[in-house]
């Protein structure tokens, strides 16, 4: 474990906590894409199957369980909570997620480290995570309202993978033979998807004004 990866994991955890707090405190999920939350739940389920058969460390196990539980809690709030579910923008959150899931699954069948069920599902989760934020970014463009907490959530979610990029560079130079091409390429694509958002987020922060997205 290195400081970049720990910072990445903590940023990821913090992003989820911020979203949960926003939903719990304001009893509203306005501006939040349920599709992105469901895609992330799929990412965690398909990636953390090894919870059942391999123990890596207490930290690894605890974090996986936290990510799974928080992902399903957010989905429960947005689908079932009597007050919160009324604030969900169903008409605007219309991204066709099958156009993300099917290509990622086909790619995982074609490009993977090993042709086994768990390995293909793990690879699928790596590809899917790279595009899971798209429904959320599209929703932001449509609704224009980027409330502060949702903006912070997306910024931290993008930042965690950028910190992982630094972690991979660090490990490449410090651990002989450490290679993870699939994860590296996918993680780079994932970070690039956020670049446009980062630009407008930092601009709003510098001008100390509410974040607004172009027309």
């Amino acid at each position: 474990m290195n400081i970049f990866r720990l910072a990445g994991d903590m940023t990821h955890l913090l992003s989820i906590i911020v979203l949960l707090l926003k939903i719990q405190a304001t009893k509203s999920c306005a501006g939040v894409s349920l599709k992105t939350q469901e895609l992330y739940a799929v990412v965690f389920v398909t990636r953390y199957l090894d919870l059942f058969y391999s123990f890596i460390s207490l930290y690894n196990t605890v974090m996986k369980i936290i990510f799974l539980l928080t992902a399903f809690t957010i989905i429960w709030y947005m689908r079932k909570h009597k007050v919160v579910c009324q604030t969900y923008d169903k008409e605007q959150d219309t991204f066709r997620v099958l156009f993300l899931i099917v290509p990622c699954f086909v790619l995982a069948l074609l490009v993977n480290h090993e042709m086994s069920v768990t390995e293909v599902l793990w690879t699928f989760s790596i590809y899917l995570e790279a595009v899971a934020i798209l429904p959320q970014l599209v929703l932001l463009q449509r609704t224009k309202n980027v409330d502060n907490l949702t903006g912070n959530y997306i910024f931290m979610l993008g930042s965690y993978r950028a910190l992982y990029l630094v972690n991979w560079v660090y490990r490449y130079f410090t651990e002989l033979g450490y290679r993870q091409w699939i994860v590296w390429v996918s993680g780079t694509v994932q970070t690039c998807v956020y670049l446009d958002f980062f630009y407008y987020y930092v601009q709003a922060w510098r001008n100390n004004e509410r974040m607004k997205l172009p027309g």
């Binding site: 990821h12 090894d50 690894n60 090993e114 992982y164 450490y178 994860v183």
Partner: peptide, 10 residues
């Protein structure tokens, strides 16, 4: 095949 040290990340 991924080695165990390649499987230690979240």
């Amino acid at each position: 095949k991924r080695s165990s040290k390649q499987k230690d990340e979240l």
